[in-house]
Amino acid sequence: MADMDSGIAAVLGALAGSVATIGAALATGWAQREGARIAARSEHRRERREPRHAVYRDLMEAATTFHHRIAIYKYADVGMREDLQLRVEDIPALRQNKERVNKSAIEVALVGPKGVSEASMKLSKWSEEAYTYVSALTDLHPSQAADEQIWRFTTQGAADATKRCGHALEEFALLAQAALDDDGSRK
């Protein structure tokens, strides 16, 4: 009986060793696959982050320049007639800047993510509207008192659109920063 017990013990010992070796091999394989998956995901995020950063920066630069050019309209008062009018020669530069905002917003919409894309399109919309009102003011001459209602409407529209453009720029900046900081651990 002692021989049988020692034989069974030897077989059970060998079996336990085999199971432990197989378990260790499975755990090592899983850990290696998990490590490779994490590394691949990290590389993918880095590859997506770099182009996003450049595209987001382009939109921020264009929108900030545009907003600075029209910032006076945020405080528009219908009594500031001469002060609020852009010179006609300033309109082409403002139009170019607005078009750069629109183009950059489309680029941002393509690289995402969704919240940043939506914010970029909102920024584009308010930049377009602000441009429309501000450029319309150049067509209204201070001496035309008969068009006072049109002047008031256009001045208020320019003020409102300029404020919304500024808010959209702030919203975009916050969402872009969050998207660039996202390491994938938040869901």
Rank of each mutant, 00 (worst) to 15 (best):
M1C: 08
A2M: 07
M4C: 07
G7F: 15
A9T: 10
V11D: 09
L12A: 13
G13L: 05
S18W: 07
V19I: 14
A20S: 12
A20Y: 04
A20R: 07
T21F: 11
L26G: 01
A27F: 07
G29H: 08
G29E: 02
A31K: 13
Q32G: 09
Q32T: 13
R33P: 02
R33D: 01
G35S: 12
R37D: 15
I38Y: 00
A39R: 10
R41Y: 12
E43M: 02
E43F: 00
R46P: 05
E47Q: 15
R49M: 11
E50A: 15
P51N: 02
P51C: 09
R52C: 03
A54F: 11
A54L: 14
Y56N: 08
D58M: 06
D58G: 09
L59D: 00
E61G: 00
T65M: 09
T65G: 04
H68P: 04
H68V: 04
I70G: 04
A71C: 08
I72E: 10
A76L: 05
A76H: 08
D77Y: 08
D77F: 09
R81P: 06
E82A: 13
E82F: 12
E82W: 10
Q85M: 14
V88H: 08
I91E: 11
P92Y: 05
P92F: 05
A93T: 01
A93E: 03
A93N: 02
L94Y: 05
L94K: 07
R95K: 13
N97V: 02
K98R: 13
E99P: 04
R100N: 14
V101P: 01
V101E: 01
K103F: 12
S104E: 02
A105Y: 06
A105F: 11
I106W: 10
V108I: 06
V108G: 06
A109E: 00
L110G: 15
L110K: 03
L110H: 07
V111M: 00
P113D: 11
K114F: 14
K114D: 14
G115Y: 03
S117I: 01
S117A: 15
S117N: 10
A119L: 03
M121R: 13
M121G: 02
K122W: 06
K122C: 02
K122Q: 09
L123D: 01
K125A: 11
K125T: 12
W126G: 01
S127I: 01
S127P: 04
Y131P: 04
Y133F: 12
L137M: 13
D139K: 13
L140T: 06
L140W: 03
H141P: 07
H141I: 14
P142L: 01
S143Y: 10
A145K: 00
A146W: 10
E148Q: 13
Q149P: 01
I150P: 00
W151H: 01
W151M: 02
R152C: 10
T154L: 00
Q156D: 15
Q156I: 09
Q156F: 12
G157R: 05
A158V: 06
A158S: 09
A159L: 12
D160N: 10
D160R: 00
A161E: 05
A161P: 02
T162W: 09
R164C: 02
G166K: 03
G166Y: 08
H167P: 00
E171C: 01
A173T: 15
A173S: 15
A176K: 00
Q177C: 09
Q177H: 14
Q177V: 12
Q177P: 05
L180R: 04
D181C: 06
D181S: 12
G184N: 04
S185Q: 11
K187F: 12
